[in-house]
Design a protein around this nucleic acid. Sequence first.
DNA 1: TCTTTCTTGTGAAATTTTTCTCAAGTTCAT
DNA 2: ATGAACTTGAGAAAAATTTCACAAGAAAGA
Lengths: 195, 195
Amino acid sequence: MGVYIQVLEDLQSQQQQVIPSEKLAEKCEVNSSQIRKDLAYFGEFGVRGVGYYVTDLLQAIKHFLGIDRNWNCILVGVGNLGRALLRHRQLPQKGFQIRMAFDCDPFKIGEHVAGHEVVCTRRLKEKAQLMQIDIGLITTPPERAQRAANHMMQAGIKGIINFAPTRIHVSSDVTVDYVDFSNHLISMAFRLSHP
Amino acid sequence: MGVYIQVLEDLQSQQQQVIPSEKLAEKCEVNSSQIRKDLAYFGEFGVRGVGYYVTDLLQAIKHFLGIDRNWNCILVGVGNLGRALLRHRQLPQKGFQIRMAFDCDPFKIGEHVAGHEVVCTRRLKEKAQLMQIDIGLITTPPERAQRAANHMMQAGIKGIINFAPTRIHVSSDVTVDYVDFSNHLISMAFRLSHP
DNA sequence: TCTTTCTTGTGAAATTTTTCTCAAGTTCAT
DNA sequence: ATGAACTTGAGAAAAATTTCACAAGAAAGA
């Protein structure tokens, strides 16, 4: 689904107004029926004999996905990955604002990264409750991930993205998503060794 | 599949010798039949009435996935994400060694990041061919991703992982994998807005 | 040895996802 | 107008994935 946005924004910046599912499929490297099914899922946006109006479609997809608004995020764990995310320009561009950064290392507390002061993780609840935070990003080492998740839950955060390579346990009203690049390398290793 | 490794390594470090699919399923948050199907796919590793021997299983999985060896990688694009990957300790630990780092920015060339000298991207072919490089990581801005891919193909690299948010075109003997965190944030936004 | 309790591996069933196909709507040249 | 060329939306078919259900093997106590 994210691919559609990527490709459509590209088309938009190239001033292309309309695109048929066949061409869009080519660019996204998927089957065109797939695209038509997906797009038909949230309304009739195509025009028969013509195709899809890029701008309208993009807006509709974004609305459907819930990214036609801003989302407040916080990050726990200011290591290499944490810093990369804090500095990543693409996230705010897509409506995901990292509002605060936390770490429990006294050497990091007080430091500034990409305009964010690093705050002690213990103060997460106190700080995060002042603002309505939607999403928490965990970029700690694996042994600290669960504690970070606990702090987030105490602050009422309902969506957690865990970049640490470990499972975490959360109450049933919290959604967790796991991200681990090593998986991509592993999958590549597998594909290269089974030609 | 990567989850299995994560959980099994955890069990191994806890000295647990045997685990039944039911318990493993719990920890991986998947169905136990699923696990048994997956594990049976590359041989009969379980023992009926007992379960799976953690160490043997782990070794078998790693062999099957092709990660019981080292893989030589290079990276193009020494930005925030590139630096995070270069410094990431987990990758070499799992057998993925980033051997060289390239960038086309004259200010970055010559700089050292986590023990890697940053080299001009134009010298990629010349440099990479000295060593047998298996996997190329693209962490450039999107507009430079295709060029990076071209350099990699010229150096005979058959596996590319593209972290840049754009599609790239490669010859049919090259495998590409796309990685984009914004997708995880988008998917989270979707789940939070459809409770 | 026999019985009870576990737990795997796997065929069958159920479910989900992907692809095929085509009627119906749109555009454009004539 | 009319016909030819396109393209969507959606039902049907096909393929892939996930789950169920249970025979058969293993362990342990009586």
